[in-house]
């Protein structure tokens, strides 16, 4: 018996419906948050800061803010949905269905990516209103947006499977995502950092994500775009394999 495509489609739609019915919380609130970032860092402070690599500061922060919202939304969508259904027992409906790990992972990741693209797209539109339209290399921009949202959706699945209580789940955004994104060159160029921090920053995967998208949108980047893409694709492959295996063996979700 082959893949359960009806099941995959149903699970995907179910996850989409979950975030779209509470769109005020899932779509509107991140939009407001990032608009505030634009106002504070871009408009208020940006006028006092000089340009970076010839780009006005308010434009410089746009790719980072888009990435920040995509990362958070992709992660939160899979993590909160899966964790909630694990705790309230509704995951059973999925676990007793004839769905293989491939279908389950694709459905969850697909829905999370959709949310990330909706929010990221809206943030981009807000940015266009503030800074005008910039899209230097659309192909690269799309590639980075896809790789990043998929990676963090996968990470969300792993976090939800691993977590036993709500506290566990918040460890990842609080102690991993926030520091990595703030230190990942969203608000500054790593060339502005003194040694050894410019080198240390290169170990942070978020740096490659932000700079990849910055290259796609603005045409400039702190790091080589090919190198960024390769790093990200490798990260995505590792996360995909790990998540598939965890779902396949039912780690922490089947006894």
């Amino acid at each position: 018996m082959g893949w359960n495509l009806t099941g995959l489609k149903t699970l995907f739609m179910k996850e989409v419906r979950r975030f779209s019915t509470v769109w005020k919380q899932t779509v509107l609130s991140p939009l407001i948050t990032t608009s505030l970032y634009f106002l504070v860092f871009g408009v208020a402070l940006g006028s006092r800061l000089k340009t970076i690599d010839g780009v006005p500061y308010i434009e410089f922060v746009v790719p980072g803010l888009i990435m920040l919202s995509m990362i958070t939304n992709a992660f939160l969508n899979t993590a909160s949905s899966l964790f909630q259904s694990k705790i309230n027992g509704t995951l059973l409906d999925v676990l007793i269905a004839p769905l293989g790990a491939t279908e389950v992972v694709l459905a969850y990741v697909g829905a999370a990516m959709l949310r990330a693209f909706v929010v990221g797209g809206l943030v981009f539109l807000v940015a266009v209103a503030f800074t005008g339209f910039h899209m230097a290399h659309p192909g690269w921009a799309l590639l980075f947006a896809v790789a990043v949202s998929a990676s963090f959706a996968l990470l969300g699945i792993l976090a939800a499977m691993w977590a036993e209580k709500y506290d566990h789940l918040s460890i990842v955004p609080n102690f991993v995502l926030t520091p990595l994104t703030f230190l990942g060159g969203v608000f500054y160029s790593i060339d502005m950092l003194p040694a050894p921090w410019d080198t240390v920053s290169r170990l942070n995967p978020v740096l490659y994500m932000v700079n990849g998208l910055r290259y796609g949108l603005l045409g400039s980047s702190d790091v080589d775009v090919l190198w960024s893409a390769a790093t990200l694709c490798a990260l995505l492959a590792v996360l995909a394999a790990t998540t598939w295996y965890a779902v396949h063996t039912g780690y922490n979700i089947r006894d």
Binding site: T6, G7, T10, L11, M13, R17, T21, D93, V94, A97
Partner: peptide
């Protein structure tokens, strides 16, 4: 999130029907 009718429709889909 779902009504009884929606729950049944979703479960059908998940089961591959």
């Amino acid at each position: 999130f779902f009504t009884p009718h929606q729950s049944l429709m979703i479960q059908m889909g998940l089961m591959g029907v």
